[in-house]
């Protein structure tokens, strides 16, 4: 059974007045898709939950800046992607720092970065192992190609929605997707050779 979509225009107006109940309605309506976007990037449930919360805190504080050029869902998805990318950068910095400190001291904070053994909870059981190879290859794609592939294939967004989120034309998105697939084929070919 699909839930009725709330009136996003009304919710936007209510949230901009500081209505937390309206924010909760928006959260319940979009939490799964925002979580899924974050999970696709950070590959860890707890981290994705953290990002999900961050996103809605930011939505509450900066809803006045939403001009309505795109849909509210698109705007929030963009925030989720940016937060996820910031989080990945933060983790990489932390990992580098942990490496440097490990040279001098054994007492370093252990940094948990999910590797290619990530199992996306949405992937059916018989495809779990195969998806690990796919995510390993996705990580090596150029940023825009990776985003295009993630939104269209993992988030299963429509061409129009994904193009809006990435702020490109649908034609450009098609090009990105085509290049992403070509590169994935090459990367998977290398992985196959190493098996």
């Amino acid at each position: 059974m699909t839930q009725a979509q709330p009136d996003y225009t009304l919710l936007t107006a209510q949230i901009s007045k500081g209505d937390e109940h309206a924010l909760e309605k928006l959260f319940l309506s979009l939490k799964d898709s925002v979580f899924s976007v974050a999970l696709g990037y950070v590959r860890n449930t707890e981290d994705a939950e953290e990002i999900l919360q961050d996103v809605f805190v930011e939505v509450f504080h900066s809803i006045q800046t939403f001009k309505g050029d795109s849909s509210l869902k698109t705007w929030i998805t963009r925030i989720a992607i940016n937060k996820s990318l910031d989080y990945i950068k933060f983790k990489k910095r932390k990992k580098r720092f942990a490496f440097v400190t490990s040279i001098f001291s054994k007492e370093t904070g252990e940094v948990r970065i999910q590797g290619s053994d990530f199992n996306h909870p949405g992937v059916v059981m018989e495809n779990k192992e195969k998806s690990q190879y796919l995510f390993e290859a996705i990580d090596k794609l150029p940023e825009k190609q990776r985003d295009a592939f993630m939104l269209l294939k993992i988030e299963q967004m429509s061409q129009r929605e994904a193009a809006e989120v990435l702020q490109v034309t649908e034609k450009a998105l098609e090009g990105l997707m085509q290049r992403a697939k070509e590169n994935l084929r090459k990367l998977l070919s290398n992985i196959y050779e190493e098996l």
């Binding site: 924010l23 959260f27 939490k31 919360q53 809605f56 949405g122 059916v124 998806s131 190879y133 070919s189």
Partner: peptide, 25 residues
């Protein structure tokens, strides 16, 4: 093998998250 890997996310299921996370927000 490459085709199989590329198509393994074709029927990916929507992910669901706990609603009680709103308390944290």
């Amino acid at each position: 093998w490459i085709e199989e890997i590329l198509n393994c996310v074709e029927n990916i299921q929507p992910v669901q998250v706990r609603g009680d996370l709103f308390a944290g927000i």
